[in-house]
Amino acid sequence: MSAPIVAIDTMGGDFGPRLIVQASIACLKATPSLHLALVGQPSLIEPLVSGLSAAERARLQIVAASEAIGMDERPSQALRGKPDSSMRVALELVRDGKAHACVSAGNTGALMALSRFVLRTLPGIDRPAMVAAIPTCGGFCQLLDLGANVDCTAQQLYQFAVMGSVAAKALGIEQPRVGLLNCGTEDIKGNQQVRQAAALLSEARNLNYVGFVEGDGLYRGEADVVVCDGFVGNAVLKSSEGLVSMIAERLQAVFRQGLLARLAGLLALPLLKRLKADLAPARYNGASLLGLQGIVIKSHGSTGAQGFQSAIERALVEIHVNLPQRLSGLLEGHLP
């Protein structure tokens, strides 16, 4: 394929262009084939790229956009009231074939609304779903939806399961195990939508459906794809990140309690650093909006430079495997 081009919404997120451009430049330097389109206000972006070499600058273009979407802005206002927002212009680059993917740390609701309007969904898909890798005992699983769809029908949960399974196959898992996140493993547990979705998935011949998965089973690696509505998924994601931070802080406090504890901490330090790196939320930052006719990656608005780099790297993986085209080609045989 041609050199990957990623459109970056530089005006989104909690920290503005400085952090996003910094992370984008780090990826540009680390990936010689990567080309970037930095979308936003040129007067803010130009000073941040002035130190690039001529060869690096040749792989980067600045695309002007006069408006920015606030993190607390209503999606309807972003859709109708800001036609020249950096987020929308970046998505239009993907639509027009001028970029292979869009990465934004901006307003999630606005990104979902604009993505559906600009790029459209794949045939047979009602709504895109946000999916990201969650670390487990044996590796990681794909969890969706992570907040794009707070209320979901059984049919939409079924569609999420199909998309998650196809995406997991594209990422290298031959027969991904698909589970529904639930408050128990018995057939009578869960709300009506989850039980109805389970009935649909049980009849699907092209899916490796393994049944209900509880919260602890998610982290034990009982499934490669775990499906839930966006309200539950977002709560799980934020709780996971908070738990990792809490454990790290508690361990640091324990190892400061007395001389013996400090000695034990020094001995355990290499292992703790490795564990922290393996579980760091920044490493798994970057949620894909599956089901669109184009690649869109949502980064946490509050992430640091390393986290935004991870989001760009996720975009590069999806570009490499041509994920939307794979989804489009395989969904027809799965969807009822």
Results as ranks from 00 to 15, higher is better:
V21H: 00
A305C: 02
E174Y: 06
G97I: 15
M87G: 11
G81T: 11
L91S: 05
R250W: 10
A129Q: 03
I247H: 04
V321E: 09
R283S: 09
R314T: 14
L181P: 04
F117L: 12
I62H: 14
L38P: 10
L267Q: 12
P123G: 06
K238S: 00
G291D: 09
E214C: 07
L263P: 13
L237F: 02
S24W: 00
V225Q: 03
V39L: 04
L290G: 02
C102K: 08
Q61W: 02
G294A: 06
P135Y: 10
K238T: 11
A199R: 15
E222D: 14
R283A: 06
Q192A: 07
P75C: 00
P281G: 03
S66D: 14
L201F: 10
K98P: 09
D9P: 15
L91I: 11
G139Q: 06
G124W: 08
V89P: 10
F255D: 10
H100P: 15
D229H: 07
D229T: 08
L251Q: 10
P32K: 04
V232N: 01
G294N: 01
A23L: 12
V317A: 13
V150T: 05
R95W: 06
A170R: 11
V236L: 06
M246I: 13
P128A: 02
K29L: 10
M130P: 02
L44M: 06
S76K: 09
E67I: 14
D96I: 12
M1T: 15
